[in-house]
Amino acid sequence: MAIAVQKGQVARWIELLQEYDFVIEHRSGKSHGNADALSRRPCPEDCKHCTRQEGKEVVSARIFRTDQLSNEWKDSHAQQEDSDIKPILEWMKASAPKPKWSDVSAMSSTTKSYWAQWDSLLIQDGVLCRKWENGRGDRCHLQMVVPKAKEPDVLQLYHSGCSGGHLGVKRTLLKIQERFYWVHCRDDVEDWCRKCTSCAAVKGPQIRSRGALKLYNVDAPWERIAIDVAGPFPETESGNKYFMVVMDYFTKWPEVFAIPNQEASTVADKLVHEVFCRFGVPLEIHSDQGRNFESPIFQETCRVMDTQKTRTTSYHLQSDGMVERFN
């Protein structure tokens, strides 16, 4: 069916094109530079990494827009005083070819990092800059290479200053990369944001403090009990769909009762007539935060019996682990 549809479409196109005189010629893929430039980046003349190089006659469609640096940051004197940048700056001003490894091997790791990016460096108005090209290849920025003494000024301006707004690491880094570059810039931005007192005061501590764990000391049977309700289950002939578990913390003795529902009145009635009347009133009852245990009826029962009521923390079954394990 699909083949028939395709043949029909071809037939209609042939009928329409019969009105014109034209010649169909094959055009190789490398000749489609007008279309390929929109979807791929052409290989450079000395490309050594790609086995499928586009034709060198294809005109590059990349548009480079170079931003000019502001005058207040054009400070070559600070770069001259930076021991890591000074050698690179002098070589670049002398229009020297890329130095050999033997010339930089004894220098600092920062100087070596700039040396490794030699092809991306240039001199503009006497200032050492770095060309930064985005992933699409359609835009190129000039980033001023920032000397060590000026790094705090840049971080202060773009994070803590009026134009910074105390943004996070990612957004602060993006703003800085629009105009500046230095080795380990990301690490310095992360460290600056982490140590910012204004950000710390708003965000608070990363690690929240928790209450200290403690052990409950139980001295006698039925002094402290735990209670829980499980279900619903398939209804029995007696109409029961839930079961209520009561356990003693001292002896680990369990009592299980089948109940028709988990309403607060049903739970309180079963607890009084089946537990309190047989074993006595405990000093403390522990349960989860179920609505039946938190209801006014259950709370009033505990108040009348002079029993202290405790509860687990939210979404933390370990707080009532004895009953949960038994279930």
Rank of each mutant, 00 (worst) to 15 (best):
V5F: 14
K7N: 14
G8V: 01
Q9A: 08
R12M: 00
E19W: 10
V23P: 06
S28W: 08
S28T: 11
S28A: 13
G29F: 07
G29K: 10
S31C: 00
H32G: 06
G33E: 07
N34F: 11
N34L: 11
N34P: 06
A35Q: 02
A37M: 10
R41F: 13
R41S: 15
P42A: 06
K48H: 04
K48F: 02
K48I: 00
H49M: 13
H49D: 15
E54Y: 01
K56W: 03
E57I: 02
V58E: 01
V58L: 12
A61L: 10
R62T: 06
I63H: 14
R65H: 01
L69C: 06
N71Q: 02
K74D: 06
A78I: 09
S83C: 00
I85R: 04
K86I: 01
K86A: 07
E90P: 06
E90R: 11
M92W: 07
S95D: 12
S105P: 06
S109R: 01
T111C: 08
Y114L: 15
D119S: 06
D119A: 12
S120C: 06
L121T: 01
Q124A: 11
D125V: 05
G126A: 08
L128V: 10
C129M: 11
C129W: 00
G135W: 08
G135N: 12
R136I: 06
D138H: 10
C140T: 13
C140Q: 15
L142H: 14
M144F: 07
P147A: 12
K148H: 11
A149L: 00
A149E: 12
A149F: 01
A149T: 00
E151S: 02
P152A: 13
L167A: 11
G168L: 03
L173Q: 09
L173S: 11
L174I: 13
Q177P: 03
R179D: 06
R179Y: 12
F180K: 04
F180E: 12
Y181I: 07
Y181K: 03
V183D: 10
C185Q: 10
V189A: 09
E190K: 10
K195G: 07
S198C: 01
A200F: 03
A200D: 11
G204P: 10
Q206H: 12
I207P: 02
I207Y: 01
R210W: 02
R210V: 12
G211Q: 07
A212V: 07
L215N: 13
L215S: 03
L215V: 00
Y216P: 08
N217R: 04
N217Q: 05
V218C: 08
R224M: 14
R224Y: 07
I225T: 01
I227S: 06
I227T: 13
V229F: 10
P232T: 04
P232L: 07
P234S: 06
E237K: 09
K241W: 13
F243R: 05
V246F: 14
M247L: 13
T251M: 04
P254K: 09
P254R: 10
F257Q: 07
A258Q: 14
I259P: 09
T266Q: 01
D269K: 07
S287I: 15
Q289N: 15
Q289C: 03
G290T: 09
E294V: 03
S295M: 04
I297S: 08
Q299D: 09
Q299M: 08
C302L: 05
D306A: 14
D306I: 11
K309D: 02
Y315G: 02
Q318E: 15
D320A: 01
V323R: 03
F326M: 08
